[in-house]
Amino acid sequence: MTDALGSIDMPERGRSESEPEKPVSSDNVGTDESTEAETKKSRKGGKRAKKGPLARLGLFYRQIIAELRKVVWPTRGQLTTYTTVVIVFVAVVIGLVTVIDLGINEVVKYVFG
């Protein structure tokens, strides 16, 4: 299991949940086959290998489109409701700031003549 923060409890890569973990004993410490295999298979760059600027730009736009397809867009009714709430809230805040400003203006006139 992974112990990293924010991770979901998932089996480690390459091993199913039903497979028991290998016990660590003093005779097999430092001779972990998976560590040796990972160091041999490590590759530079992976998906982020150097590509031309047009290929990277194309990948960027494909990723943008893929993310936009995941967005849950509001319906027309929801959009109207959200817009109305924002406009009313802004109007209320403008009214409060105006009242406070006029009040401070009167206090300044009274104190400084």
Rank of each mutant, 00 (worst) to 15 (best):
M1Q: 01
M1V: 00
M1N: 02
T2Y: 05
D3F: 00
L5Y: 13
G6L: 08
D9L: 03
M10K: 09
M10Y: 04
E17A: 15
E17F: 14
E17K: 15
S18C: 15
S18K: 15
E19T: 14
K22M: 02
K22A: 02
K22Y: 00
K22R: 10
K22L: 01
P23L: 06
P23V: 02
S25L: 05
D27Q: 09
V29Q: 11
S34H: 11
A37R: 06
E38G: 04
T39S: 12
K40P: 04
S42F: 08
S42M: 11
R43M: 08
G45P: 04
G46Q: 11
K47H: 07
R48K: 15
A49V: 12
K51M: 15
K51V: 14
G52F: 02
L54C: 01
R56P: 01
G58A: 09
L59D: 15
F60C: 13
Y61E: 07
Q63N: 13
I64P: 00
I65G: 03
A66E: 09
R69S: 09
K70M: 09
K70V: 05
V72E: 07
V72H: 03
W73G: 00
W73D: 01
T75V: 04
R76H: 05
G77E: 15
Q78Y: 06
Q78V: 03
Q78I: 03
T81L: 09
T81A: 10
T81F: 05
Y82H: 11
Y82F: 11
T83G: 08
T84G: 09
V85F: 01
V86C: 04
V86H: 04
F89Y: 03
F89H: 05
V90E: 04
V90H: 04
V90A: 12
V90L: 12
A91F: 08
V93K: 08
G95Q: 05
G95W: 08
G95A: 13
L96C: 12
V97H: 07
V97G: 03
T98G: 07
V99A: 14
V99H: 07
I100E: 08
L102C: 11
L102R: 13
G103N: 08
G103Y: 07
G103L: 07
N105F: 12
N105T: 11
V107F: 02
V108P: 02
K109P: 02
G113R: 10
G113E: 13
